[in-house]
Design a protein around this nucleic acid. Structure first.
Lengths: 283, 283
DNA sequence: CATAATAGTGACCAACTGGTCATTCGTCAA
DNA sequence: TTGACGAATGACCAGTTGGTCACTATTATG
C-alpha cells in the first residue's frame, strides 16, 4: 500500500471517530506509522487531504446514482435501486458517512462546501428526473415536495443504520421507502415548495465538463500508470480526440464504453457522458 | 442586561456563525465587550457555558411540545400544532437551531450528548403518544416507522427554513406535514422498525423527577429572587410539600397550576407533572 | 564501491487555545 | 479623604495546532 493510501486510511478512520477538526496531523501520522514530515510529502496541507477524501467519495456516489437513474430497469425498480444504493454506499463507507453526517459546515473550507452543495444538487437532479419518469404529469407542482420528502426519508433512515447498532436489512428498508414514496406520490395533494426555493435550479455539471477539465482528469489518471493496456490506450485516444478540431461523438462514445466498467475511471465516464449530452442535447 | 446574559448572547451568535469548537473565549469576550478574565466570573469553564445554552433551549422545546401533546385540542389539531411549534421554535431560536443542526457529536461533552439524546427521546415519546391517539390500533406495527418518517420530514423542512433565504410560510408547511402524515398513516402498509430498534424504550424522565432533583430546580429558581410574590410563595410551598412525609397530590397540583403560565418556571411545571404521573400512574 | 537522488525524520516555529492570578479600577461607607 | 472590597483586567502559563526545514537513511545508478 502506498504511503498516500496509508495516510488516507488512517485519516478517514480518525476523522470518523473524533471529527475533522479534532484530529491533528500528529495523530494521523502516528496512526499511519510515519513521521510528521512524511505527511507533507504526500499532501501539501491538511485541507487538501480533507478535500481529497470528500471529493473521491462524493464522485463515487454521484456516479453510482447517475448510473442507476439512467439504467435500463423499470422506473419502479430504479427507485428501489436508488434507495438501496444510498444505503449500501452508507454501509460500504461508514467512516466517510459519519464524517459527512456529523461534520458541521463551519469546519470545512468554503471551496469544499461549495463542491459538496454541487454534488448534492447533481444527485437531486438525478432523483428528480427519476421521479418525473415515474409519476409524470400528475406530480407536477408537488415534485419538489416529494423530492425533499424522499431526502428526509433517506437521511433519517441512514442515520438509523449508521448510528444504531443493529444488523439492518437494507433490502427491506429500500422496499419500505419505495412504498412510502409511492403512497406520497399517489395520495398527497398539497404542495409548498416551488422551483426557486430549491437551489438546484442553475448549477449543473456543465461547468466541469469543459475540454480542459476533462483533459486534466485524464492526465491525472494516466499519471498513475497502472492501468490495463486497453484502458491506457483508450484514455490517450480520448484525450487526443478531445483536443482535435471537431471531436467525433461516436468515437468518444465508443472509447467511453471501453472504460465504463473500469472503476478508477468511473468519474471520467460520468463526465464524458455529461459532456456528450451537453454537445448534443437532442438525445 | 447582566454580564452573564451578554456573554450568553455573544456566545450564541458566534457559535451559530462559526461553530462551537472554532469559537474561542477570546472571541466571545471581545464580542461581548468584556475582558477574558470577566468571563470566568460568570462561568467556571467554556464547557459549562455550552451546557447552559443547550440545556436551556432543550428544556424550552421539550416543555412546549409536551404542552401541545397534552393539550385539549382535537388530535388532528394537535398534530398541526406540533409541526408548527417545531418550526416556530426554529425561527425563534435560529441561532441555537443552527448550532444544534450543524454541530458534530464529537465536539460535545459526553454528559451533554447524553442529555441531548434524553431530551430527544422525550420529544419522541410525546409525539408517539400523539400518533397513537390519532391513529390507534390500525397503526400498530407501523408506529415507529411513522414516527421516524415524521422526524425526517421535520428535519428536512427545518433545514430548508433554516438555511434557505426565503420568507417561509410555516403555517402552510405545518399543514402540508399534517397531510403527509395522514397519507402515510392511512395508506402505507409495510413496516420495518420495531420497538427495540428505537432507542426511546427505556430512559424516560423518571430519573430526573426525584425529590432532590426537583428541590434543586426550585432552589435555583428561588436564588434569582426576582419573581412575583405569588410565584415565590408557590415555589416555597412546593418545596415544603415535597419535603413532607407524604406530599399531597392535590396541593402540588394546585401549586403547579399557580406557576404554569410563568415562563421561567416552565421547566419545573413540566417536571412536576411528570412527578405527579409517576406517583399516581392511574390517571 | 562511490555518488547522486530520493524518502523520511523530528526538533522547531509562530499562532492559538482554555484557563489563572497579581494587579488595577470603581464605587461605596465612614 | 480615606480605606476597603468586589468587579474587572490582561499579561502570562502550559499545551496543542498546522506547517517547515536542516538533517539522516535508503535506494538506485554509474
Amino acid at each position: 500500500m502506498s504511503k498516500k493510501q496509508q495516510i488516507l486510511d488512517a485519516a478517514l478512520q480518525l476523522f470518523a471517530e473524533k471529527g475533522i477538526e479534532a484530529t491533528s496531523i500528529q495523530h494521523i501520522t502516528q496512526e499511519a506509522g510515519i513521521s510528521k514530515g512524511a505527511f507533507y510529502l504526500s499532501f501539501p496541507s491538511k485541507e487538501s487531504l480533507i478535500k481529497e477524501i470528500i471529493d473521491s467519495f462524493m464522485k463515487e456516489i454521484v456516479t453510482e446514482i447517475d448510473r442507476i437513474v439512467n439504467g435500463m430497469e423499470l422506473p419502479d425498480e430504479k427507485l428501489r435501486l436508488y434507495f438501496h444504493a444510498q444505503l449500501a454506499l452508507l454501509e460500504k463507507h461508514a467512516d466517510f458517512a459519519k464524517i459527512y453526517a456529523q461534520e458541521p459546515m463551519h469546519a470545512l473550507n468554503e471551496e469544499i462546501m461549495e463542491k459538496l452543495i454541487h454534488y448534492d444538487a447533481w444527485i437531486d437532479r438525478s432523483l428528480l428526473s427519476l421521479l418525473d419518469e415515474l409519476y409524470g404529469e400528475p406530480l407536477r407542482g408537488r415534485r419538489y415536495d416529494l423530492l425533499i420528502s424522499i431526502k428526509g426519508f433517506v437521511r433519517i433512515y441512514s442515520q438509523l443504520v449508521l448510528f444504531h447498532p443493529y444488523p439492518h436489512d437494507i433490502e427491506k428498508i429500500a422496499e419500505l421507502l419505495v412504498e412510502k414514496t409511492n403512497v406520497l406520490a399517489t395520495y398527497s395533494q398539497t404542495a409548498y415548495l416551488t422551483e426557486d426555493m430549491v437551489e438546484l435550479s442553475m448549477p449543473g455539471p456543465e461547468e466541469v465538463t469543459t475540454q480542459e477539465k476533462l483533459l486534466s482528469v485524464i492526465d491525472e489518471l494516466l499519471e498513475d500508470e497502472q492501468h490495463p493496456p486497453l484502458i491506457s490506450e483508450s484514455l490517450s485516444l480520448i484525450a487526443e480526440e478531445l483536443q482535435s478540431e471537431a471531436p467525433r461523438r461516436a468515437i468518444l462514445h465508443g472509447l467511453q464504453a471501453n472504460i465504463y466498467d473500469y472503476a478508477p475511471a468511473n468519474w471520467l465516464s460520468y463526465l464524458l457522458k455529461k459532456y456528450e449530452q451537453k454537445k448534443s442535447p437532442d438525445a
